[in-house]
Amino acid sequence: GLPPGWRKIHDAAGTYYWHVPSGSTQWQRPTW
Results as ranks from 00 to 15, higher is better:
residue 1 G to Y: 11
residue 1 G to F: 11
residue 1 G to P: 13
residue 1 G to D: 14
residue 1 G to T: 12
residue 1 G to Q: 13
residue 1 G to K: 13
residue 1 G to R: 13
residue 1 G to V: 12
residue 2 L to R: 04
residue 2 L to M: 06
residue 2 L to N: 01
residue 2 L to H: 01
residue 2 L to F: 03
residue 2 L to Q: 06
residue 2 L to D: 09
residue 2 L to E: 15
residue 2 L to S: 04
residue 3 P to E: 02
residue 3 P to L: 04
residue 3 P to Q: 01
residue 3 P to Y: 01
residue 3 P to A: 04
residue 3 P to T: 00
residue 3 P to V: 02
residue 3 P to I: 01
residue 3 P to W: 03
residue 3 P to G: 03
residue 4 P to M: 06
residue 4 P to A: 06
residue 4 P to V: 06
residue 4 P to L: 07
residue 4 P to N: 06
residue 4 P to E: 08
residue 4 P to S: 06
residue 5 G to I: 01
residue 5 G to R: 01
residue 5 G to W: 07
residue 5 G to V: 02
residue 5 G to K: 01
residue 5 G to S: 03
residue 5 G to Y: 04
residue 5 G to E: 04
residue 5 G to P: 05
residue 5 G to M: 03
residue 5 G to D: 05
residue 6 W to D: 02
residue 6 W to F: 02
residue 6 W to S: 00
residue 6 W to M: 01
residue 6 W to V: 00
residue 6 W to K: 00
residue 6 W to R: 00
residue 6 W to N: 01
residue 6 W to Q: 02
residue 6 W to T: 01
residue 6 W to Y: 01
residue 7 R to H: 10
residue 7 R to S: 08
residue 7 R to Y: 12
residue 7 R to L: 14
residue 7 R to E: 09
residue 7 R to F: 11
residue 7 R to W: 08
residue 7 R to P: 02
residue 7 R to T: 12
residue 8 K to V: 15
residue 8 K to T: 12
residue 8 K to H: 09
residue 8 K to A: 14
residue 8 K to R: 13
residue 8 K to W: 11
residue 8 K to Q: 14
residue 8 K to N: 03
residue 8 K to D: 05
residue 9 I to F: 05
residue 9 I to A: 05
residue 9 I to E: 04
residue 9 I to W: 06
residue 9 I to H: 05
residue 9 I to R: 05
residue 10 H to E: 15
residue 10 H to W: 10
residue 10 H to R: 12
residue 10 H to I: 15
residue 10 H to L: 11
residue 10 H to G: 07
residue 10 H to F: 10
residue 10 H to M: 14
residue 10 H to V: 15
residue 10 H to T: 15
residue 10 H to N: 12
residue 11 D to I: 12
residue 11 D to P: 00
residue 11 D to A: 13
residue 11 D to W: 08
residue 11 D to F: 09
residue 11 D to S: 15
residue 11 D to H: 10
residue 11 D to E: 07
residue 11 D to R: 10
residue 11 D to M: 09
residue 12 A to P: 11
residue 12 A to T: 10
residue 12 A to E: 14
residue 12 A to Y: 07
residue 12 A to V: 11
residue 12 A to S: 12
residue 12 A to Q: 10
residue 12 A to F: 08
residue 12 A to G: 12
residue 12 A to M: 09
residue 12 A to K: 12
residue 13 A to S: 14
residue 13 A to D: 11
residue 13 A to P: 03
residue 13 A to E: 11
residue 13 A to Q: 13
residue 13 A to I: 11
residue 13 A to Y: 14
residue 13 A to W: 14
residue 13 A to L: 14
residue 14 G to I: 06
residue 14 G to Q: 07
residue 14 G to E: 05
residue 14 G to H: 06
residue 14 G to K: 07
residue 14 G to Y: 08
residue 14 G to L: 06
residue 14 G to V: 07
residue 15 T to R: 04
residue 15 T to D: 12
residue 15 T to N: 07
residue 15 T to Q: 07
residue 15 T to H: 08
residue 15 T to G: 07
residue 15 T to M: 08
residue 15 T to Y: 08
residue 15 T to P: 06
residue 15 T to L: 08
residue 16 Y to M: 07
residue 16 Y to R: 09
residue 16 Y to H: 04
residue 16 Y to E: 03
residue 16 Y to S: 01
residue 16 Y to L: 08
residue 16 Y to G: 05
residue 16 Y to P: 00
residue 16 Y to T: 01
residue 17 Y to R: 00
residue 17 Y to A: 00
residue 17 Y to V: 01
residue 17 Y to G: 00
residue 17 Y to N: 00
residue 17 Y to E: 00
residue 17 Y to T: 00
residue 17 Y to P: 01
residue 17 Y to M: 00
residue 17 Y to H: 04
residue 17 Y to K: 02
residue 18 W to R: 09
residue 18 W to V: 15
residue 18 W to M: 14
residue 18 W to N: 05
residue 18 W to Q: 12
residue 18 W to E: 12
residue 19 H to E: 00
residue 19 H to W: 04
residue 19 H to M: 04
residue 19 H to F: 04
residue 19 H to K: 04
residue 19 H to G: 00
residue 20 V to Y: 11
residue 20 V to H: 07
residue 20 V to E: 14
residue 20 V to K: 07
residue 20 V to R: 06
residue 20 V to F: 10
residue 20 V to T: 08
residue 21 P to R: 07
residue 21 P to N: 06
residue 21 P to I: 09
residue 21 P to Q: 08
residue 21 P to Y: 08
residue 21 P to F: 08
residue 21 P to T: 07
residue 21 P to A: 10
residue 21 P to V: 10
residue 21 P to W: 07
residue 22 S to F: 03
residue 22 S to I: 02
residue 22 S to T: 13
residue 22 S to E: 01
residue 22 S to N: 02
residue 22 S to K: 03
residue 22 S to D: 04
residue 22 S to W: 04
residue 22 S to H: 03
residue 23 G to L: 04
residue 23 G to E: 04
residue 23 G to T: 01
residue 23 G to P: 00
residue 23 G to V: 00
residue 23 G to R: 03
residue 23 G to A: 04
residue 23 G to Q: 05
residue 24 S to Y: 14
residue 24 S to W: 15
residue 24 S to D: 11
residue 24 S to Q: 15
residue 24 S to A: 15
residue 24 S to K: 15
residue 24 S to N: 14
residue 24 S to T: 15
residue 24 S to R: 15
residue 25 T to Q: 08
residue 25 T to G: 09
residue 25 T to N: 06
residue 25 T to R: 14
residue 25 T to P: 02
residue 25 T to V: 15
residue 25 T to K: 15
residue 25 T to W: 14
residue 25 T to S: 09
residue 25 T to M: 14
residue 25 T to E: 06
residue 26 Q to H: 05
residue 26 Q to F: 05
residue 26 Q to P: 01
residue 26 Q to S: 12
residue 26 Q to E: 06
residue 26 Q to A: 06
residue 26 Q to W: 06
residue 26 Q to M: 09
residue 26 Q to T: 10
residue 26 Q to L: 06
residue 27 W to F: 12
residue 27 W to L: 13
residue 27 W to N: 09
residue 27 W to M: 13
residue 27 W to R: 14
residue 28 Q to A: 11
residue 28 Q to M: 10
residue 28 Q to S: 09
residue 28 Q to H: 13
residue 28 Q to W: 13
residue 28 Q to V: 09
residue 28 Q to G: 08
residue 29 R to E: 11
residue 29 R to D: 07
residue 29 R to T: 11
residue 29 R to A: 11
residue 29 R to Y: 11
residue 29 R to L: 12
residue 29 R to H: 10
residue 30 P to S: 02
residue 30 P to N: 02
residue 30 P to Y: 04
residue 30 P to I: 00
residue 30 P to R: 00
residue 30 P to Q: 00
residue 30 P to G: 05
residue 30 P to T: 02
residue 30 P to D: 02
residue 30 P to H: 04
residue 31 T to F: 08
residue 31 T to R: 08
residue 31 T to P: 07
residue 31 T to E: 13
residue 31 T to V: 12
residue 31 T to I: 12
residue 31 T to L: 12
residue 31 T to S: 12
residue 31 T to M: 12
residue 32 W to L: 10
residue 32 W to K: 07
residue 32 W to P: 08
residue 32 W to N: 09
residue 32 W to I: 10
residue 32 W to H: 10
residue 32 W to S: 09
residue 32 W to Y: 10
residue 32 W to D: 10
residue 32 W to Q: 10
residue 32 W to R: 08
